[in-house]
Nucleic acid binder design. Structure first.
Lengths: 204, 204
DNA sequence: AACTTGCGTAAGCATGCACTTGCATTATAC
DNA sequence: GTATAATGCAAGTGCATGCTTACGCAAGTT
């Protein structure tokens, strides 16, 4: 019985295949790319790919797992509480953006592939949820400290999350003259400006 | 020479195939669904599908074209100018949402398929652009009327657009307890509240 | 009655692709 | 020096799928 002999999962080959898969999957979608293409990009024989991961779907799972493993949830929110609404928000968001920018590929994959592969989407949602919760907690904290007006915090958090997440993908597709308007800095600034102008009780 | 004889494009069959295609494409992606599946859903023989559209890609194009043809750009922005920032925005957004809700499928398709089929994405972008332009013009109009503070209007428009567009797709995937927080009404309200609280010179 | 149009049915071709098998090759370990 | 682990290479299998061909049938048109 030729049991699928899994080679050591720590080799360089393993990693290279995963990185290649991540690239191809996000570029053309799961169905849209072939294992051949992944192998080629990894500089590896196609057979090696199967020896490592068994089948294509398992490769997807491994790639997602790898990618998610790289992300770190936002540190404890308490540390943001001392700052003003404006500064705290800015820090929270930029910290989060730092995570995202390195993982924007997998997030986009998660969005486009979420129907055909709910498991994949779930993993991502779990991560995004952490930030959502952090945001809401942060708002409620600020509100309790009377540094912020009352508002529909879940929706507010949703708004921020969506904008932050979509910006990189919009960025990738947008024509050159629009990208200029969509630098991370400007988006974050406008986001924070708007929220603190609207709800801050510190300023003015 | 068996030239592809295009049957009349006004038949019921034609429409049913397009609707089926729209459904399947958005469900599983272009590569993810087969012409057989589309035909089956349309209650039509697969051959008929090819007789109408020649090939799969042409079907995609026809489906997108059909869908986009259903959308109407926002009416002339002038009519919103008389209203307050809050009321004008609300009207602009709800009007736009009306369009979107009937076309959310195709929009999601556009997003997920935009890399492999840029033409498709282009058509959609063109539509979205119209709203973006309308929004920016509206803001500038309000600003000129001194009914609104200065702001980064393009980014602000981007923020609104993104939130509006993403909400339906998030809605589809989100667990039940989150959907409650994401009714169109609440999202629009928070959006408008936030913007007008932040930038309106009418209120307070 | 003959022709056209729109569709169905059956069968099949060609290709791409996930996945397998068998064998040769290198390197490392013991 | 021999066993073992990790990879490459050549070839192939089986299935899904896009697309075609050839034929038949019903309804409307002329």
């Amino acid at each position: 019985m030729s049991d699928g002999t899994h080679p050591g999962t720590e080799t360089q080959t393993h990693r290279r295949i995963i990185l290649a898969a991540l690239h191809e999957f996000t570029q053309s979608g799961y169905k849209g790319c072939s294992t051949r293409a992944v192998a080629e990009r990894a500089g590896v024989n196609e057979v090696t790919l199967f020896r490592h991961f068994g089948n294509k779907l398992e490769l997807l799972r491994a790639a997602v797992e790898y990618s998610v493993g790289q992300m770190r949830a936002p540190a404890d929110i308490e540390s943001y509480f001392n700052l003003s609404l404006r500064d705290g928000l800015t820090k929270l968001i930029t910290d989060y953006l730092l995570q995202l920018s390195s993982q924007s590929d997998i997030l986009m994959l998660g969005f486009s592939e979420s129907f055909s592969h709910p498991e994949v989407a779930d993993v991502l949602r779990r991560f995004i949820w952490q930030f959502r919760t952090a945001l809401i907690q942060y708002f409620e904290g600020q509100y309790a400290q009377k540094k912020m007006k009352e508002a529909d915090f879940p929706v507010l958090a949703h708004m921020l999350l969506i904008t932050i997440h979509s910006t990189p993908s919009v960025h990738k597709r947008a024509p050159e003259d629009v990208k200029i308007h969509l630098s991370d800095e400007r988006v974050v600034k406008t986001l924070v400006d708007t929220v603190s102008l609207a709800y801050s009780l510190d300023e003015l």
